[in-house]
């Protein structure tokens, strides 16, 4: 299962169980933050690979 799939599944589950709106909103935004973090990791890794291949 891709990382984002299980995050989505966990977040949906927690949102359903949350008994108040602030918690539901928190989990929804947490998912976005985790996706953004993964994007930044991929970008940084890509930049490192690119610079390594071009001999810096």
């Amino acid at each position: 299962m891709a990382t984002t799939d299980w995050i989505n599944q966990a977040v949906s589950q927690l949102q359903q169980h949350a008994d108040n709106y602030p918690d539901q909103a928190f989990y929804a935004v947490l998912e976005k933050v985790m996706i953004e973090q993964q994007k930044r990791i991929d970008q940084a890794q890509g930049e490192i690979d690119g610079r390594s291949w071009s001999g810096w």
Binding site: W6, I7, L14, V33, I41, A44, Q45, E47
Partner: peptide, 20 residues
């Protein structure tokens, strides 16, 4: 699980930014 994922991602990103 979400905590662990977010924390390890933060460490990984920090390491990558340092390498960069």
């Amino acid at each position: 699980s979400l905590y662990d994922q977010l924390e390890s991602g933060q460490d990984e990103l920090k390491d990558l930014q340092w390498t960069l």
